[in-house]
Nucleic acid binder design. Structure first.
Length: 820
RNA sequence: GCCGAAGUGGUGGAAUUGGCAGACGCGCUGGACUCAAAAUCCAGUGAGGCUCAAACCUCGUGUGGGUUCAAGUCCCACCUUCGGCACCA
């Protein structure tokens, strides 16, 4: 009988669905929550999805077989820009396009045989879901964590529309090619910066996260300790406040710089006759991207604003500039220029002929190279009463003195910025705010939620936010006074949807609340979260922030959402990420069609460890298909032998039996450890391949015992079940076992079968392998050394030299070191 | 530019704690079966040297240095490729 994967996969998928095999309720006491990042429904599953879900499925099935009640849900991150683009391009509607995609992707997932509890499916574009997005927005709003402020967006003057960063291609609009400008808009923000310190501190709790992800998050938060210092400006009421991590260098300040966008620039330049020059400079700045602005290659440029500030430390007059290398978003958007001790300031000062005054003297030999600023430790000079102090001491004293004078204070700044959540887009969650001419900004009352996203909207990609054009949507009445009012027409960033979906999965059908606290507490935190490393910062940071807010407000107990995190690598073809434009896409559908889901899953797990990028290989897929066929034949050819096999009689085992049992037990151990401790599915599968090779040999051996063969085959099928769930069900039935293989207990191994009579020890002379000897395990070091020195091959290399020492690693290696 | 990774045969990768580099798979070569092919099975396969052959020897984990009895693994410098950079998700 041939391995007919089409029939087998269909058969067992129906069986699982009839039995509702992967449904889980909340009553178990051994709960385990596996979660893969829910996909954007782009239309078709790609290999990255297959990889993500295959990894999650192995973990889920493995945990289930080890006795856990596994929650393994799936849903759709269904709002976003591609739906609008598709709607414009194909004259369809985002709603229709998205739901069609969900429909077909769900079918594809089912054909992959992933063990989801489909009863818990959610889609973020459904009012049942986004209602709670709005509810949570209001919760944050009421708690002072959502606010509006002006912020810049990319603006295409020809399409008169806001552009996403992605739609800006080297400074031009992707649709019409016009130069993209910056435009100020009132935008909604979430106050993630309130949580900066906790997001930083709690990284330490996340023992199950990769260090690299924690490090990236830490750098993203970017905590720096320092001081704010106020500089007064001649002829102006208002002070310039700067932030510096090096207040010890305040005596070395020779100029000041503000970000050109800083509102004070205009006040300072006013009446100095330099307004035009400044305006021209600001225009130029607005055309630059942030990447260009922060580049070290950036030529430091600025304009003098015509006034002088006073250094509060020594009373010196400092010229005030607007400069391109100062970012309005970071710190206070203004700096004191200390060219001797900051490279960027040094370059600026050199260009504009400003003084360079050394105030921190390094120890001899540590000086900066010619033409560079010195930013290391040292002793204070040219700093009045602070001369001679170590710079750390100077930081303390200078800040204390500034505080006393009311000219500054200690401060901690973060690079992390508040989360801009409003989008001038259609396909997203409407922000539930109403603007009333009398009452102002009014939140939509809870009982009026959801604010439904209207479906009858035409998209053009031009002009204002599409919602602003719908009179029916915009015009409403004020919830407070009942007079005519207008709705907020911005929608929410889709990251809002993905910042709490893992909580919704614990209680997906709740109509009274986003989720029930008891249910959330039962399942959270997610035990194993799996997704692409490209989400290492934004999504994971936002999800952590949301969970902390919800925890603080008493909606759930956990304040970190993901206990363990696995970041998977990308799927490449010919060394590049699969993409339509490169024409190197391999469709999962085609592979399933040709070889079956089990082969597709097996290959993607076998080809590379999950954290690494994976190179797609059609021939590698063939290899995995061959391997499944090999297992199929092995079991099929053995059914008659196994049918009458009794129990293993441990008193009557021959050498072949003992060797076979050793391989079986070694494999069980290896596969268990590779899945549980390292997620190294590739080596787990290799180990099973070796076992299959051994079983083939054993089967042909005249000394083979049916009971041992049966032991090998049942272990083989059960070990393969998480990787290839369909074929293993069929084989399980074929060898006469009852019930689903996925309900079997994960096998254990017996130590007694792992004990060997002798082990091979490598003997090196001066670090080069010269011989091998057989020893009993656990032999004493001295005895091993003696054996090695007596070895003929070793003596051929030691003759004529004197043995300096012998290094012995028990049961493994001996290194004879010759002197001379 | 900044932050974070990765680099091992013809190829995907293995080597888990500093201890035999190349497990397992693919490809390739030779053979068996076959009228023939496919499928399957068996054997070989890092490079070079020596040899009828075996044995044996040398080199070898991006590059250059270093630490160590011993380095793919640790340290320093560099090169290349990839991911993220806040409105793609």
């Amino acid at each position: 009988m041939r391995y007919e994967f089409e029939k087998i996969e269909k058969k067992w998928q129906s069986y699982w669905e009839e039995q509702d095999l992967y449904a889980v309720d909340d009553s178990g006491d051994n709960r385990y929550y596996t979660l893969e990042m829910f996909p954007y429904p782009s239309g078709k599953l790609h290999m990255g999805h297959v990889r993500n879900y295959s990894i999650g499925d192995v973990v889920s099935r493995f945990k289930r077989m080890n006795g856990s009640d596994v929650l393994h849900p799936m849903g759709w991150d269904a709002f976003g820009l591609p739906a609008e683009n598709a709607a414009i391009k194909h004259k369809t509607h985002p709603n229709e396009w998205t739901w069609n995609n969900i429909e077909s992707m769900r079918e594809q997932l089912k054909r992959l045989g992933i063990s989801y509890d489909w009863n818990r499916e959610v889609a973020s574009c459904h009012p049942d879901y986004y209602k709670w997005n709005q509810w949570l927005f209001l919760l944050l709003y009421k708690n002072g964590l959502a606010y509006k402020k002006r912020s810049q967006v990319n603006w295409c003057p020809s399409c008169t529309t806001v552009l996403a960063n992605e739609q800006v291609i080297s400074g031009e609009c992707e649709r019409c090619g016009s130069a993209v400008a910056k435009k100020d808009l009132e935008q909604w923000f979430f106050k993630i910066t309130d949580y900066a310190q906790r997001l930083l501190d709690d990284l330490e709790k996340l023992e199950g996260w990769p260090d690299k992800v924690k490090l990236m998050q830490k750098n993203w938060i970017g905590r720096s300790e320092g001081a704010s210092i106020d500089f007064s400006v001649e002829g102006l009421e208002q002070d310039i406040r700067v932030f510096t991590t090096r207040p010890d260098t305040v005596f070395g300040a020779t100029f000041m710089c503000l970000a050109p966008e800083h509102p004070m620039c205009r006040d300072i330049v006013k009446g100095t006759g330099r307004e035009e020059e400044f305006d021209a400079f600001l225009d130029g700045i607005k055309k630059m991207s942030e990447l260009e602005r922060t580049s070290n290659e950036l030529v430091k440029e600025g304009v003098f604003l015509g006034r002088y500030a006073i250094n509060p430390a020594n009373g010196k007059r400092l010229p005030v500039y607007a400069a391109n290398y100062i970012l309005y978003e970071y710190g206070t958007g203004a700096i004191m220029g200390v060219p001797a001790h900051d490279q960027r300031d040094y370059e600026f000062a050199t260009k504009y002929n400003l003084d360079i005054i050394e105030v921190v003297r390094p120890v001899a030999g540590e000086e900066a190279p010619e033409g560079q600023a010195y930013d290391g430790p040292g002793t204070m000079v040219n700093s009045g009463i602070y001369d001679g102090l170590d710079y750390t001491e100077a930081i303390e004293r200078i800040v204390t003195d500034l505080e006393r004078k009311g000219r500054g204070n200690r401060e901690i700044k973060y690079r992390l910025r508040d989360w801009l959540i409003s989008r001038q887009r259609y396909w997203g969650t409407p922000i539930p705010i109403v603007y009333c001419p009398d009452c102002g900004e009014v939140p939509v009352p809870e009982e009026d939620l959801p604010v439904i996203l209207p479906i009858d909207i035409a998209l053009t990609g031009m002009g204002d936010s599409p919602l602003a054009m719908s009179e029916e949507f915009v015009n409403t009445i004020c919830p407070l006074c009942g007079k005519p009012a207008r709705r907020e027409t911005d929608t929410m960033d889709t990251f809002v949807c993905s910042s709490w979906y893992f909580l919704r999965f614990t209680d997906p059908k709740n109509t009274k609340a986003p989720f029930d606290r008891k249910k959330a507490d039962a399942w959270m935190p997610v035990d194993q979260y799996i997704g692409g490393v490209e989400h290492a910062i934004l999504h994971l940071m936002y999800a952590r922030f949301f969970t902390k807010v919800l925890s603080d407000l008493g909606l759930c107990s956990c304040d970190e959402p993901f206990k363990n995190l696995l970041t998977q690598g990308m799927v490449l073809k010919d060394g590049a990420k699969m993409s339509k434009s490169k024409g190197n896409v391999v469709s999962p559908e085609d592979i399933i069609e040709k070889y079956g889901a089990d082969t597709a899953r097996l290959f993607i797990l076998f080809a590379a460890p999950p954290e690494r990028d994976l190179e797609w290989s059609d021939q590698g897929v063939e290899g995995c298909y061959r391997f499944l066929n090999r297992i199929w034949r092995l079991v099929e050819e053995s059914t008659h032998v196994v049918a009458n096999a009794g129990k293993i009689d441990s008193g009557h085992l021959n050498e072949e039996d003992r060797e076979m049992l050793y391989v079986i037990n070694r494999t069980v151990k290896k596969v268990t450890e590779d899945i549980k401790e390292r997620f190294n599915f590739n080596t787990a599968i290799s180990a099973v391949m070796e076992m299959v090779n051994a079983l083939y040999q054993y089967k042909e051996d005249p000394g083979a015992t049916p009971a041992v063969l049966k032991e090998g085959l049942t272990k083989l099928i059960v070990l393969m079940a998480p990787f290839a769930p369909h074929i293993t069900e069929e084989l399980w039935e074929m060898i006469g076992e009852a019930g689903s293989v996925h309900l079997q207990r994960w096998p254990s191994y017996k130590e007694e079968h792992l004990i060997r009579d002798s082990v091979t020890v490598v003997v090196q002379v001066n670090g080069k392998v010269r011989s091998r000897i057989q020893v009993h395990p656990g032999m004493k070091k001295e005895e091993m050394a003696q054996l090695a020195l007596e070895d003929e091959r070793v003596r051929a290399h030691t003759d004529g030299g004197t043995v300096k020492k012998v290094i012995v690693v028990p049961d493994k290696l001996i290194n004879v070191v010759l002197g001379g």
